[in-house]
Design a protein around this nucleic acid. Structure first.
Length: 255
DNA sequence: AAAAGGTACAACCGCCATAAC
DNA sequence: TGTTATGGCGGTTGTACCTTT
């Protein structure tokens, strides 16, 4: 007694999309917007299943897609994000405006993996290839850690290789597959005087430092500046929304 | 010029959480 | 409340294109 099926699989096309199919899909979404993928194919006159339409639109037809080669800055950002998030391509894509999860996933598998290997870095663990497991420094699996954390617990701080569900109450939960040597936030250091901040200790958020002055991602605006200049302790580099080393997982959901 | 091998990437598959019935 | 489809995700495959032999 559930829902009715979205399409008759026997009467759907498969394989590469034709120009005509693309045009139909674009025209339909321009006229009606994104919405119910279930009913879209029929309404748009496409012999495709809704899932296929969604994928085609999201990955290739959306007007805000960047396309083209990845820049060196994007490469490095993907590597950093991957070291933090693992194969969470949708989350990584959320931090790269105009890029899709599928595109990044393909790019990772074809380019970046090889690039890391030539640098002598294991693309899975982000650690040197010749390093034995015993020698490995503590690493964490963000995905593994987050998988068991409920929504209300998803504020995770990462400190010296520990995953802490609450910064006040560090949980010694060591997870083995992610390199924490990444400098995702400044180590606990004596606070800089505000003069130091003005002189360049903190000026741009991570987005801006990469030239990604996207208003949505930018955090060096009023709030951040206000926090810094008002004498509070907000000297944390806002990488991935990490404020003072605290990663709010929800802030990565950018859809 | 042709065959073989390698690479890049679009598309599909299967799984899961959630919504709809 | 149970069942089933949808939407979304990551993993994998198929194939067109490029390079090497």
């Amino acid at each position: 007694m559930g829902r009715s099926p979205c399409c008759e699989k026997a009467h759907t096309n498969k394989g590469a999309w034709t120009k005509e199919e693309d045009d139909r899909l674009i025209a339909y979404i321009r006229a009606h917007g994104e919405g119910c993928w279930r009913s879209l194919p029929k309404a748009a006159g496409l012999l495709r299943c809704g899932k296929s339409c969604r994928l085609r639109w999201i990955n290739y037809l959306r007007p805000d897609l960047k396309r083209g080669n990845f820049t060196e800055e994007e490469d490095e950002l993907i590597i950093k994000l991957h070291s933090l998030l693992g194969n969470k391509w949708s989350l990584i894509a959320g931090r790269l405006p105009g890029r899709t999860d599928n595109e990044i996933k393909n790019y990772w598998n074809t380019h970046i993996r090889r690039k890391l290997l030539t640098r002598g870095i294991d693309p899975t663990t982000h650690r040197p290839l010749n390093e034995t497991p015993q020698e490995s420094a503590t690493t964490i699996s963000f995905a593994a850690a987050s998988a068991n954390i409920k929504e209300e617990d998803q504020k995770i701080s990462i400190t010296n290789g520990l995953v802490c569900k609450d910064s006040k109450n560090p949980v010694q939960e060591r997870c083995p597959d992610l390199n924490l040597e990444l400098q995702i936030s400044p180590p606990c250091q004596p606070q800089q005087p505000s003069d130091g901040l003005k002189s360049g200790g903190r000026g741009l958020c991570f987005s801006c430092s990469l030239g990604l002055q996207d208003a949505k991602n930018c955090s060096c605006g009023r709030d951040a500046i206000g926090g810094a200049t008002s004498g509070t302790t907000n000297i944390g580099y806002d990488f991935l929304g990490l404020k003072n080393g605290v990663l709010d997982y929800r802030s990565l959901e950018m859809k």
